[in-house]
C-alpha cells in the first residue's frame, strides 16, 4: 500500500480517431515534483487536463488523497466537492496567464478571490494576505491595485502563482509556466518556483518542452511521445543517461548555452 498523494491509472483519451494519450499510469508522492516532457503534440497537455479533471478520460482513473487521508477517485466526487478541491487544495498555473487570471480585476482581487471563495469576509485581512503573497512572489506592494493587464509577462506568471498558493494547496499543476518569457525572466521565475516548492513542500506536476526547466525543478521525469510514456525515472538519470533512442535525441537536441 503506497502513501501516494495522487495516482493515475491507465489514462487514455482519444479525440475522435486521433490519440490524445494512451494508458498512462504514475504515482505522485507528497512534496514530489514530476516533470512531463516531450515535443509538441506528444500528449503532455492532454494528460495534464485529464489529471486536472478538465477532460474526462475514455478509460482510466485519477485518485487523490484528500486532506482526511482517504484516497478518492476524482471522477466519483460530486461537482461541489471537485470544485472545492480545485480551488483550495489544488492550484493550476497556466501557460497563458489570461486563462489563469481575471484580467479586469486588480492583483489584490486576483489573489483574494480564493480566500473570498473559501468564506473570508474581512477586507483588511484579505488585503493583508494578498500583500503578503505579492511580496513572496516579488511584486511590489504599490502594484496591488493594478489589474494584470498592466503587468509584464513575468509578473503575470508570478501573480498566477500567488493566486494559486494563497489557500495553501498541496498539489500544483503547471502547464509550461515559463514559455514565452525571455531567458532572464525565466531564470528568476524558476528560481522563485523552486524556492516556494521547497519551502511549502508542494507536490507539482509540471508540463514542459524545456528540458532545462525539468532539470532545474523536478525530482522525476516522464518522457512522452505520440501519446505514450516512453521513459520515466529520476531526473538526472533520465536526462544524463537516457535509455530510449527518442529521449537521447531529445536530450542531445538541447542547444548548448
Amino acid at each position: 500500500m503506497s502513501d501516494a498523494l495522487l495516482q493515475a491509472r491507465g489514462l487514455t483519451k482519444h479525440y475522435g480517431a486521433r490519440l490524445g494519450c494512451a494508458d498512462v499510469s504514475f504515482d505522485l508522492d507528497p512534496g514530489e515534483v514530476l516533470a512531463i516532457v516531450g515535443e509538441s503534440g506528444s500528449g503532455k497537455s492532454t494528460l495534464l487536463s485529464l489529471v486536472a479533471t478538465e477532460l474526462a478520460p475514455d478509460s482510466g482513473s485519477v485518485s487523490y488523497r484528500m486532506r482526511d487521508g482517504v484516497m478518492r477517485d476524482l471522477s466519483r466526487l460530486s461537482e461541489a466537492e471537485r470544485r472545492a478541491l480545485m480551488r483550495t487544495d489544488w492550484g493550476f498555473v497556466r501557460q497563458d496567464a489570461r486563462q489563469g487570471l481575471r484580467m479586469a480585476v486588480s492583483a489584490g482581487g486576483n489573489v483574494g478571490e480564493r480566500l473570498m471563495g473559501a468564506g473570508a469576509r474581512h477586507y483588511g485581512t484579505i488585503r493583508g494576505t494578498a500583500l503578503d503573497w505579492l511580496a513572496k512572489v516579488e511584486i511590489a506592494a504599490d502594484r496591488v491595485d493594478d489589474p494584470p493587464t498592466r503587468f509584464s509577462g513575468g509578473m503575470r506568471q508570478r501573480l498566477q502563482i500567488a493566486r494559486n498558493l494563497v489557500t495553501g494547496p498541496r498539489l500544483v499543476l503547471m502547464d509550461e509556466p515559463t514559455s514565452g518569457l525571455d531567458v532572464s525572466v525565466q531564470a528568476r521565475l524558476l528560481d522563485l518556483i523552486r524556492g516556494l516548492v521547497a519551502e511549502l513542500g508542494l507536490a507539482v506536476i509540471i508540463v514542459t518542452h524545456d528540458l532545462a526547466v525539468a532539470r532545474l525543478l523536478s525530482h522525476r521525469v516522464m518522457v512522452m511521445r505520440a501519446g505514450r510514456v516512453i521513459e520515466t525515472g529520476l531526473t538526472d538519470q533520465v536526462l544524463d543517461d537516457p535509455a530510449e533512442p527518442y529521449t537521447q535525441l531529445l536530450v542531445s537536441s538541447v542547444l548548448a548555452a
Binding site: 470544485r83 481575471r102 486588480s106 483574494g112 478571490e113 473570498m116 473559501a118 477586507y123 491595485d145
Partner: peptide
C-alpha cells in the same frame, strides 16, 4: 459559490 461577488465589492474598496 459566491466568492466572486465579493471580489467585485473588494475591487470597489480597493479603488
Amino acid at each position: 459559490e459566491y466568492g466572486l461577488m465579493h471580489v467585485k465589492l473588494y475591487e470597489d474598496i480597493a479603488r
